[in-house]
Amino acid sequence: MLLTAGVCALVLCAALSLALGSRSIPLSTVIDALTGAGHGGDADVVTGLRVPRTVIGLAIGAALGVAGTVAQGVTRNPLASPVTLGINAGAGFAVVAAIYAFGLTRPIEYLWFAFAGAALAAVAAYAMSRRGGDLDPVRLALGGTVLTVVLTSWTSALMLASHRTLDEARFWLAGSIAGRHLDTLVPLLPFLVLGLVGAFAVAPSLNALALGDEAAQSLGVPVTRIRVVGGLSVVLLAGSAVAVAGPIAFVGLAAPHLVRPLLGNDHRWLLPGSLITGPLLLLAADVLGRLVARPSEIEVGIVTAFLGAPLLAVLARKVAR
């Protein structure tokens, strides 16, 4: 029932994404444009700009929501997400370094660099969190924070060293789904699907992992394998999202926390809930960014950061208690 309500809310949000922007378009015109019956400037705006933007928002939001849920489950850390673990910062730094060194200009060219940066950042955060052979969730959060600060400073240094890199990367680093075309998303779909399959495959084992490594092993759960598969899923999902839209903060952190009070802690329900809540949050933030600064826009990454910072403070205070 709750999942059905979430799907209905997501459909409504997608409709608003198609209808609202620097100028509002009547819903009847949107429907005509989608069915091919509409013609003219408004129909062209819907089909040429807002449909790709909305579809990409749905895909990226789903990827970030699921990635955050798996990251929290694998690490047993309620503050874990692609942002707090340094994964987004690693992918962002790798892409900016590639722009600086090779003059890349298209998101599809960023793909492998985004994946490599995300993977290396995840491994580094995991290595810093080890204590006596066990995963320490507190050290993981601290290591991810330190990693994010270091990589962000390196990214800024590269951008300041090259005006071309600054011009190419500054809007991408803000995190945006505006101006993206579907041909940017299509090559990434296999990686997104593979990441989602891996995430849902480890969902039952994440429930056991929440009991601790020893308890999970006593239940026959291959802890190392689950962490590897879960980690790879997070890297695939977060790396794809960063390659398309830039580093968008807090969607992966917020989605599972909004779902838990409604669906509980069972990852077999958490993951579908986050799959719906992630794009719902992203599209809602994108629509808000279009409306508050008309006729201009605020990038969705800035909106999610502005709204997510208080959430992170509340969650950190709750965890500390």
Results as ranks from 00 to 15, higher is better:
residue 186 V to K: 13
residue 154 W to Q: 14
residue 158 L to H: 08
residue 171 F to H: 00
residue 189 L to G: 15
residue 158 L to Q: 03
residue 149 V to I: 05
residue 182 L to A: 08
residue 149 V to G: 15
residue 178 A to V: 00
residue 193 V to R: 03
residue 191 F to A: 07
residue 151 L to N: 15
residue 177 I to Q: 00
residue 162 S to R: 00
residue 171 F to A: 02
residue 195 G to E: 06
residue 174 A to N: 04
residue 189 L to S: 09
residue 189 L to N: 11
residue 147 L to I: 02
residue 188 L to C: 10
residue 177 I to M: 04
residue 154 W to A: 06
residue 171 F to G: 02
residue 162 S to C: 08
residue 151 L to T: 01
residue 195 G to K: 06
residue 184 T to R: 10
residue 188 L to M: 05
residue 158 L to W: 01
residue 148 T to R: 03
residue 163 H to D: 09
residue 148 T to S: 12
residue 191 F to Q: 06
residue 187 P to I: 04
residue 166 L to C: 09
residue 150 V to I: 12
residue 177 I to R: 03
residue 167 D to Y: 04
residue 184 T to D: 10
residue 175 G to M: 01
residue 176 S to D: 07
residue 165 T to Q: 15
residue 188 L to P: 10
residue 186 V to L: 09
residue 165 T to L: 12
residue 156 S to Y: 12
residue 161 A to D: 11
residue 157 A to S: 05
residue 153 S to N: 13
residue 157 A to C: 07
residue 175 G to F: 02
residue 187 P to W: 08
residue 174 A to E: 06
residue 150 V to G: 14
residue 172 W to V: 03
residue 167 D to W: 01
residue 192 L to A: 10
residue 193 V to L: 11
residue 159 M to R: 00
residue 160 L to Q: 09
residue 180 R to H: 13
residue 159 M to K: 04
residue 149 V to L: 07
residue 157 A to M: 05
residue 183 D to L: 10
residue 168 E to I: 01
residue 161 A to C: 11
residue 169 A to R: 03
residue 158 L to A: 08
residue 188 L to G: 11
residue 159 M to S: 03
residue 173 L to F: 01
residue 178 A to I: 02
residue 165 T to F: 05
residue 181 H to L: 08
residue 169 A to H: 00
residue 161 A to L: 07
residue 190 P to N: 13
residue 182 L to M: 11
residue 194 L to K: 07
residue 187 P to Y: 02
residue 192 L to I: 08
residue 165 T to A: 10
residue 184 T to G: 13
residue 155 T to E: 12
residue 183 D to T: 08
residue 147 L to P: 01
residue 189 L to M: 08
residue 185 L to M: 07
residue 148 T to D: 13
residue 156 S to N: 09
residue 186 V to T: 14
residue 177 I to W: 04
residue 180 R to Y: 09
residue 187 P to M: 04
residue 159 M to Y: 03
residue 177 I to Y: 00
residue 147 L to E: 05
residue 175 G to C: 06
residue 152 T to V: 02
residue 160 L to R: 09
residue 180 R to I: 05
residue 192 L to D: 07
residue 187 P to V: 01
residue 153 S to M: 10
residue 164 R to L: 11
residue 152 T to L: 09
residue 187 P to D: 09
residue 164 R to C: 14
residue 181 H to T: 01
residue 156 S to G: 13
residue 147 L to G: 10
residue 154 W to G: 14
residue 176 S to V: 06
residue 194 L to G: 15
residue 195 G to I: 00
residue 180 R to L: 03
residue 182 L to Y: 12
residue 192 L to G: 11
